[in-house]
């Protein structure tokens, strides 16, 4: 497979400077956020960047390989719990415990996937949810991790990131920025690599992809395990930020899957830009309407239904079809 990862020569098409400038400006703006944003805004950005990472992963899974999972909270929760366990009991430094938790989450995804892959379509979706519920119930069975009432991260562990509160907040923000950007640019790099063509092919026609020699089952499994690991890493970060974990919060289908699906579907499934647009829109809506209680959730539902009815490709999908815009171009051209 080594030859598949080498990239093709690409001619920069006209009009690629604008997208590159937009991306560069956004990255610089985000990287400078600790110097222009207030504490509350920084917290909001941190959360948005974490959701961007979750959305990119769900989109890679559902939008490209067609595996619609409603159980990604299994890996958010698992990543969080494994991270807490490692940080509290093993004494590993935080920045080692987080990737270790992600790796372990990926390993757990192998047998979980082995079960879930026996199911197809809607059954797969239900299966992933059931697996997540099993994880949630299991998490409550460990008294050392607080059982059903959960556990807090000892202050000493959080302190190891930085002694001062400002230092901790700065470090946390850059962790979130790293997560959001590496998820987005990671997906982009994957789709630009030759191997990534398999993903677009599977997205467009699984049958034809198989007939040109793509082992669709293997690709789907690899993506399932890979996205689980990255989702686990995000979970570890989310609960580092919260400093407390409970089974219900860790394995919440609303927080870690329903909102993420909303983001991807509204923004545009099967595109890299979709999760970015969706995240911005979701957080903008939440800022405005989160105080409305149940009305807020109903508003989200109504918007999702409206998008489905008007154009199920989502905001970016519809824009792309009409204008041919690409913020993250992946196209290879014949010269």
């Amino acid at each position: 497979m080594a030859s598949l990862t080498t990239d093709l020569p690409r001619r920069p098409a006209p009009g690629r400077f604008l997208p590159a400038a937009v991306i560069a400006a956004a990255v610089v703006l985000l990287a400078a956020a600790p110097w222009w944003a207030g504490r509350a805004d920084l917290r909001l950005l941190m959360e948005a960047l974490s959701y961007l990472a979750l959305a990119q992963m769900w989109n890679l899974l559902a939008g490209y390989t067609g595996l619609v999972s409603v159980g990604q909270q299994a890996f958010v929760g698992l990543g969080g719990y494994l991270f807490f366990a490692l940080a509290i009991f093993s004494g590993l430094p935080l920045l080692v415990a987080m990737p270790a938790a992600a790796l372990a989450t990926g390993l757990v995804a192998i047998p979980a996937g082995w079960i879930a892959f026996r199911l197809q379509g809607a059954y797969f979706a239900i299966g992933t949810w059931v697996i997540a519920e099993v994880f949630r119930l299991s998490a409550a069975q460990f008294p050392a991790l607080g059982g059903g009432s959960g556990i807090s991260l000892p202050v000493a562990v959080a302190r190891s990131l930085s002694e001062s509160r400002e230092g901790r907040e700065m470090a946390m923000y850059f962790l979130a920025l790293g997560l959001g950007l590496s998820a987005t640019f990671g997906v982009w790099a994957l789709l630009r690599a030759r191997w990534g063509m398999a993903l677009t092919a599977i997205r467009d026609s699984g049958t034809a992809a198989e007939s040109i020699g793509i082992s669709t089952r293997r690709v789907k499994f690899l993506i399932y395990v890979g996205t689980a690991a990255m989702t686990g890493l995000t979970g570890a970060f989310l609960f580092l930020q919260k400093l407390r974990i409970t089974p219900d919060a860790a394995f919440s289908v609303n927080d870690w899957t329903a909102f993420v699906i909303f983001i991807v579907v509204i923004g545009g499934i099967g595109t890299i830009e979709g999760p970015v647009i969706g995240t911005i829109l979701f957080f903008a809506l939440r800022q405005v309407a989160a105080d409305w209680g149940s009305w807020y959730l109903m508003l989200l539902g109504a918007i999702a239904i409206a998008v489905m009815l008007v154009d199920k490709r989502g905001i970016w999908g519809a824009l792309k079809a009409r204008t041919g815009w690409a913020l993250f171009p992946v196209e290879r051209r014949l010269r």
Partner: peptide, 16 residues
């Protein structure tokens, strides 16, 4: 593969 160019359709077939 509707989301790819004609050339990419062939390239994917040739590579995979």
């Amino acid at each position: 593969f509707t989301g790819m160019t004609v050339y990419e359709n062939l390239l994917a077939a040739s590579v995979f």
